[in-house]
Amino acid sequence: MKDNEITSFDKELNKFLQSKCLIPGGLGLWEIYFRKICTAWGEISGEIRPQHIIFSADNGCNMEGYVGYNYEVTQKQSRNMLLGRSSATQFCNFNNIPYEVVDVGIASDDGIGVNRKVAKGTKNILNHPAMTEDEFNSAFQAGYERVEHYVKQGINLFSFGEMGLGNTTTSACVLSALTGADPSETVGPGSWPNKPDLMKRKIDFVRAVLDKHKANIVSESEPDRVRKIVAHVGGFDIAAILGAMLACVDFEKPFVIDGFITAVSAACAVHMNDRVKDYALPSHNSREKGTELVLVEVGITQDMVPIQAQMSMGEGTGAILMVQMLKTTQHMFVNVGTFADLMKL
């Protein structure tokens, strides 16, 4: 919408809310997010039609044993999610939120879920760029096209999750490269035990990766710099979520960020298109160390994050809980009675 249309819509939204039998501002963040969702849509509606998308991919640093656990866990857990047996998919099933698993780079011969496999995992970023430019474009486009597919079906709110051993490491690399933050500020335990010796090993790994690629991730164009960063030190999941989030902006559909990995994707998206901030909704404050830093990049401060639960499951667990709360509050704002109705009683 143009600026004058936004102003006109804001007036309409204010009048709508002022008519309701509610204490002004009494519902805090939920009113802020109701306004944000309606403004993104350009209409006042209480019907949220959600879709949760989980992007799965393996990372070369994990497959070569530099970080994390057996990389085959990505394959097994992705199959587990298809069967509805993971925490995220249980949340989806209980709350009637449709979901899908998109394979953008699982190290398996067959495609798992929606097959958009770019390669059987990225290369080890300690020694090589994670992916080629063509591979980045393929992963990015896979994410973009999944959103486009669901927009055509009437979906109006997206949430994103991910699955891939080693992706907190790649996300820390991307965040440090994007912002210049020292790895000690961006590296958290991920699925590792939170022990000083293991953390030091992970921080040293990220520092070595950044040093290896620093000459190749510079550009005068910020969108081009982001592409280079993700292609050199990121993962297929990050590239796909980045594409999906930018598609949400193009199709004017709000989306919910999950934890650290999806927040890093959102920060990359903001650096490519500042309008992403108008569509991005936080869900929870992940216990990963770089979470607060990365959310600030998206224009989100800690007091704007509704769920403070020290979660770090991934898959979109926090995002799904947020979608259910948004569905509840969106329905309420549209259907709650007015002061005029109240005075007739």
Rank of each mutant, 00 (worst) to 15 (best):
S171L: 08
T170D: 01
Y150Q: 11
T168A: 04
N167F: 04
G154T: 12
F158L: 10
T186H: 09
G180P: 10
D182A: 15
S171H: 03
T186P: 07
G166F: 02
G164S: 02
F160D: 03
E162H: 02
D182Y: 14
E162K: 00
M163C: 07
N156F: 12
N167A: 06
L165W: 07
Y150P: 05
N156A: 13
Q153V: 12
G154K: 09
K152P: 07
D182R: 13
T186C: 15
G161S: 08
E185N: 14
L165N: 01
C173T: 04
G154M: 11
T186Q: 10
V151W: 13
A177F: 10
S159C: 12
G161E: 06
A181G: 13
L175V: 13
C173K: 00
P183M: 13
L175Y: 04
F158I: 07
S171G: 08
N156M: 11
L165R: 03
Q153N: 09
T170Y: 00
L157D: 05
V174E: 00
V151D: 13
G154L: 12
I155F: 11
C173G: 02
T170G: 02
S176Q: 05
S184F: 15
G161D: 06
D182E: 15
S184R: 12
A177V: 10
L157Y: 11
M163Y: 07
M163R: 01
F158G: 02
S184G: 13
